[in-house]
Protein backbone atom coordinates (compact mmCIF):
# COMPACT_ATOMS: atom_id res chain seq x y z
CA UNK A 1 0.00 0.00 0.00
CA UNK A 2 1.06 3.57 -0.69
CA UNK A 3 2.00 5.65 2.37
CA UNK A 4 2.84 9.30 2.78
CA UNK A 5 5.27 9.88 5.64
CA UNK A 6 5.97 13.34 6.90
CA UNK A 7 9.19 13.98 8.77
CA UNK A 8 10.66 16.82 10.80
CA UNK A 9 14.42 16.58 10.74
CA UNK A 10 17.46 18.62 11.66
CA UNK A 11 18.36 21.01 8.86
CA UNK A 12 21.94 19.76 8.72
CA UNK A 13 24.33 18.75 6.00
CA UNK A 14 23.96 15.05 5.42
CA UNK A 15 20.49 14.66 6.94
CA UNK A 16 18.95 14.04 3.52
CA UNK A 17 21.62 11.45 2.70
CA UNK A 18 20.86 9.61 5.91
CA UNK A 19 17.22 9.26 4.91
CA UNK A 20 17.94 8.44 1.27
CA UNK A 21 20.71 6.01 2.29
CA UNK A 22 18.40 4.23 4.69
CA UNK A 23 15.89 3.59 1.90
CA UNK A 24 18.49 2.25 -0.53
CA UNK A 25 20.41 0.19 2.06
CA UNK A 26 17.30 -1.56 3.30
CA UNK A 27 15.70 -1.94 -0.10
CA UNK A 28 12.68 0.28 0.54
CA UNK A 29 11.33 2.21 -2.40
CA UNK A 30 10.79 5.94 -2.65
CA UNK A 31 8.10 7.18 -5.04
CA UNK A 32 8.73 10.79 -4.23
CA UNK A 33 10.66 12.83 -1.74
CA UNK A 34 10.48 16.54 -1.06
CA UNK A 35 12.39 18.53 1.50
CA UNK A 36 12.81 22.19 2.50
CA UNK A 37 13.48 24.18 5.65
CA UNK A 38 10.51 25.09 7.85
CA UNK A 39 9.64 28.44 9.45
CA UNK A 40 12.30 27.46 12.01
CA UNK A 41 15.42 27.33 9.86
CA UNK A 42 17.05 24.73 12.13
CA UNK A 43 14.53 22.15 10.93
CA UNK A 44 13.52 20.71 7.60
CA UNK A 45 10.24 19.14 6.69
CA UNK A 46 10.35 16.14 4.43
CA UNK A 47 7.50 14.27 2.76
CA UNK A 48 8.21 10.78 1.49
CA UNK A 49 5.81 8.70 -0.53
CA UNK A 50 6.62 5.01 -0.36
CA UNK A 51 5.00 1.68 -1.00
CA UNK A 52 5.08 -1.50 1.04
CA UNK A 53 3.22 -4.04 3.12
CA UNK A 54 2.14 -3.03 6.62
CA UNK A 55 5.21 -4.78 8.04
CA UNK A 56 7.55 -2.90 5.74
CA UNK A 57 5.92 0.45 6.46
CA UNK A 58 6.22 -0.26 10.19
CA UNK A 59 9.93 -0.97 9.72
CA UNK A 60 10.37 2.15 7.62
CA UNK A 61 8.87 4.40 10.28
CA UNK A 62 10.88 2.70 13.03
CA UNK A 63 14.13 2.90 11.09
CA UNK A 64 13.48 6.56 10.25
CA UNK A 65 12.78 7.32 13.90
CA UNK A 66 16.06 5.65 14.79
CA UNK A 67 18.05 8.16 12.71
CA UNK A 68 19.54 10.67 15.13
CA UNK A 69 18.65 13.60 12.84
CA UNK A 70 14.95 12.71 12.70
CA UNK A 71 13.06 14.74 15.29
CA UNK A 72 9.53 13.48 14.68
CA UNK A 73 7.47 11.83 12.02
CA UNK A 74 3.92 10.84 11.20
CA UNK A 75 2.46 8.47 8.70
CA UNK A 76 -0.15 10.77 7.16
CA UNK A 77 -1.91 7.81 5.59
CA UNK A 78 -3.13 6.75 9.02
CA UNK A 79 -5.52 9.73 9.13
CA UNK A 80 -7.32 12.10 6.80
CA UNK A 81 -4.87 14.39 5.16
CA UNK A 82 -4.26 16.65 2.20
CA UNK A 83 -1.69 16.02 -0.49
CA UNK A 84 -0.57 18.51 -3.08
CA UNK A 85 1.98 18.54 -5.82
CA UNK A 86 3.24 21.42 -7.93
CA UNK A 87 3.89 20.91 -11.64
CA UNK A 88 5.45 23.16 -14.27
CA UNK A 89 4.87 22.20 -17.91
CA UNK A 90 6.36 23.82 -20.97
CA UNK A 91 4.30 23.21 -24.08
CA UNK A 92 4.73 24.03 -27.73
CA UNK A 93 1.95 26.40 -28.89
CA UNK A 94 3.11 27.53 -32.30
CA UNK A 95 -0.40 27.55 -33.83
CA UNK A 96 -3.42 29.60 -32.81
CA UNK A 97 -5.42 26.43 -32.42
CA UNK A 98 -2.95 25.02 -29.90
CA UNK A 99 -2.81 28.31 -27.99
CA UNK A 100 -6.58 28.28 -27.60
CA UNK A 101 -6.82 24.61 -26.75
CA UNK A 102 -4.08 24.76 -24.10
CA UNK A 103 -5.57 27.90 -22.54
CA UNK A 104 -8.93 26.14 -22.30
CA UNK A 105 -7.49 23.02 -20.66
CA UNK A 106 -5.45 25.11 -18.22
CA UNK A 107 -8.63 26.93 -17.18
CA UNK A 108 -10.56 23.69 -16.79
CA UNK A 109 -7.82 22.28 -14.56
CA UNK A 110 -7.54 25.61 -12.71
CA UNK A 111 -3.89 26.08 -13.55
CA UNK A 112 -2.26 29.24 -14.82
CA UNK A 113 0.05 30.21 -17.59
CA UNK A 114 3.06 31.88 -16.03
CA UNK A 115 5.34 32.45 -19.00
CA UNK A 116 4.50 33.18 -22.61
CA UNK A 117 6.57 33.64 -25.76
CA UNK A 118 6.05 33.17 -29.48
CA UNK A 119 6.23 29.42 -29.55
CA UNK A 120 5.54 28.17 -26.05
CA UNK A 121 3.64 28.52 -22.79
CA UNK A 122 4.78 27.53 -19.34
CA UNK A 123 1.93 26.27 -17.18
CA UNK A 124 1.80 26.10 -13.40
CA UNK A 125 -0.56 23.67 -11.79
CA UNK A 126 -1.07 22.29 -8.31
CA UNK A 127 -3.23 19.47 -7.08
CA UNK A 128 -3.12 15.84 -6.23
CA UNK A 129 -0.80 13.64 -8.22
CA UNK A 130 -3.89 12.14 -9.96
CA UNK A 131 -5.07 15.52 -11.15
CA UNK A 132 -1.64 16.37 -12.55
CA UNK A 133 -1.50 13.00 -14.30
CA UNK A 134 -4.94 13.67 -15.77
CA UNK A 135 -3.85 17.03 -17.15
CA UNK A 136 -0.80 15.49 -18.81
CA UNK A 137 -3.03 12.85 -20.42
CA UNK A 138 -5.48 15.46 -21.61
CA UNK A 139 -3.10 17.56 -23.64
CA UNK A 140 -1.58 16.38 -26.89
CA UNK A 141 1.63 14.62 -25.87
CA UNK A 142 3.50 15.84 -28.94
CA UNK A 143 3.19 19.41 -27.62
CA UNK A 144 4.93 18.73 -24.31
CA UNK A 145 8.46 20.06 -24.18
CA UNK A 146 9.19 19.64 -20.50
CA UNK A 147 7.48 18.53 -17.29
CA UNK A 148 8.81 19.38 -13.83
CA UNK A 149 7.04 18.01 -10.76
CA UNK A 150 7.83 18.83 -7.14
CA UNK A 151 6.92 15.55 -5.57
CA UNK A 152 4.15 15.33 -3.06
CA UNK A 153 3.65 17.54 -0.01
CA UNK A 154 1.33 16.40 2.71
CA UNK A 155 -0.35 17.78 5.80
CA UNK A 156 -2.93 16.33 8.17
CA UNK A 157 -6.46 17.74 8.16
CA UNK A 158 -7.94 19.31 11.27
CA UNK A 159 -6.08 20.17 14.46
CA UNK A 160 -3.48 17.42 14.16
CA UNK A 161 -0.06 18.82 13.33
CA UNK A 162 3.57 17.80 13.20
CA UNK A 163 5.65 20.26 15.21
CA UNK A 164 8.14 20.29 18.06
Amino acid sequence: MRHTISILLENEAGALSRVAGLFSARGYNIESLTVAPTEDPSMSRMTIVTKGTDEIIEQITKQLNKLIDVIKLIDLTEGIHIERELMLVKVNVSTAHHREEIKRFVDIFRGSIIDVNETNYTIEMTGTADKLDAFIKTIDSTLILEVVRSGILGIARGSKSLHL
Binding site: E55, Q59, K62, Q63, N65, K66
Partner: peptide, 8 residues
Protein backbone atom coordinates in the same frame (compact mmCIF):
# COMPACT_ATOMS: atom_id res chain seq x y z
CA UNK B 1 15.58 -1.22 23.73
CA UNK B 2 15.39 -0.70 19.99
CA UNK B 3 11.84 -0.45 18.59
CA UNK B 4 13.13 -1.34 15.12
CA UNK B 5 14.27 -4.75 16.40
CA UNK B 6 10.70 -5.62 17.23
CA UNK B 7 8.73 -7.47 14.56
CA UNK B 8 11.58 -6.97 12.09
Amino acid sequence: IDPSSISK
